[in-house]
Computed example of a mutant assay.
Amino acid sequence: MTKSIGIDVSKETLDAHRTDDGAHAQFQNDSKGRRALLRWIGDKVSLVVFEATGAYHRGLELDLAGASVPFAKVNPKQARRFAQAIGKLAKTDRVDAAMLAKMGAVLDLSPQTPATPELHDMRELLTARRALIKDQTAARTRLATASVGSVQTILKRRLKQIVKDIDQIDDALRNLSGRDMTFARKVAILASIPGIGQLTAITLLIDMPEIGGMDNKQAASLAGLAPVSQSSGKWQGKERIQGGRAQLRKALYMPALVATRVNPDMTRKYNQLIEAGKEKKVALTAIMRKLLVMANALLRSNRMWTKARP
């Protein structure tokens, strides 16, 4: 098992590259094309690497998992930075496939646990929910400045429909999350933490399925909540967060805000930071990180949150 294979995913095609013999092949991104791709990959493969491309990679991921082919799904921005680091400035489907194959071999990427079909469905529902939230915000902004009666009527009707659509998606998310006992147990553990509701717990598990399977530093880093040192020679800059999953941080913002009011430990920590002269947004970021670390630790030990003893 020495082959590392890179696959560039697009809406119509899948461009594949093998490291052992440098072979390249292109397949249609449909069920028939993916079956042909699996035959081309064979069974002596160490890792298949592809970029996360939303709906376009879903069929590939499910077929690879179904065939027990080890794979790693990488962030497109990280893949592009790797290409720049090795001097690959050109960007074509064929070049990207070769670059992804090399990335898997050079960085020794670890295979990922395949997502269940239910998790794929929940991701799609969550994406639709976030789009509706954006529509809701835009409609409210337009309504605040609308002066024509017919426009106001249309916007009010649209806002009512958006609320109904969001409620429908929320119900679907709850139903899907309850089908898998393991997933449902994780939701219950996260929802036991003051400040985290059921839907927020589901969102965290969708955005960060790795949670509970890593150490606390890795969890904070993956969310982009780990402070990064800024220094060079005698110059010492401020530590700041960067990178990570922006949607995950957005999902943690309100729970952290609520936790500073209802969770005694978080309230105490937040007040300590404010009294130490930290800005409110810095203190709240620290609470977000603490909340995520707590969630990761509870999931790792498979136990509910309990109030700390005084």
Rank of each mutant, 00 (worst) to 15 (best):
V106R: 13
E124T: 14
L155N: 12
D171E: 13
V228H: 07
E118S: 12
S147N: 11
I193G: 11
Q112T: 06
A97S: 12
N175V: 12
I189K: 08
M122Y: 07
L125I: 12
A105V: 01
A191L: 01
Q136V: 01
I202M: 12
L119S: 03
R157C: 10
D165K: 08
I206Y: 03
D135H: 15
A98N: 09
D167Q: 14
R158W: 07
M208E: 04
A220S: 03
I202W: 07
Q152V: 02
I189Q: 06
K102I: 06
I169K: 09
R129T: 03
D215M: 01
N216T: 15
G213Q: 13
P227H: 02
S147T: 13
D207P: 00
G197L: 09
V148I: 12
K160S: 10
R129Y: 07
R179N: 03
L199G: 08
A131I: 10
P114T: 06
L132V: 08
Q161F: 05
L190V: 03
A172L: 10
Q136A: 09
R129F: 06
A128V: 02
K156W: 04
I193T: 01
L204K: 03
D121G: 10
D215W: 01
T137Y: 05
T182S: 12
A144M: 06
F183K: 11
Q198H: 14
M103E: 00
V187H: 05
G195V: 07
K186F: 00
A226H: 02
Q218A: 09
H120F: 15
D207C: 04
G197I: 11
R158M: 13
M99E: 07
G149P: 02
A138I: 04
P111V: 05
M181D: 07
R179L: 10
H120T: 02
A139M: 10
I169Y: 08
G149Q: 09
T116K: 11
I154H: 13
M99C: 09
A223H: 11
L190N: 03
A115S: 13
G224R: 02
K102V: 08
F183H: 05
M214G: 00
L190P: 05
I133W: 04
E118W: 05
G104R: 05
L109G: 01
R158N: 09
D180Y: 05
Q168G: 11
M181R: 04
T203P: 03
P194D: 09
T153Q: 12
L126Y: 09
K217R: 12
A98W: 07
R179V: 05
L222S: 02
I196L: 11
Q136D: 07
I162N: 14
D165I: 01
I133L: 15
L107V: 00
Q152E: 13
D171I: 05
S147V: 04
A219I: 01
A115V: 00
P227A: 06
L100G: 03
M122A: 14
L125Q: 12
L190I: 04
K160A: 13
I154D: 06
G104E: 05
R140L: 14
I133F: 07
E124H: 06
R130A: 00
A223D: 04
L132D: 12
S221C: 09
L143E: 09
A131N: 14
L225D: 00
K164T: 11
T116C: 04
I193Y: 07
M103Q: 08
A128I: 03
A226Y: 02
D108W: 01
R158C: 07
A219T: 03
G197D: 14
G213P: 06
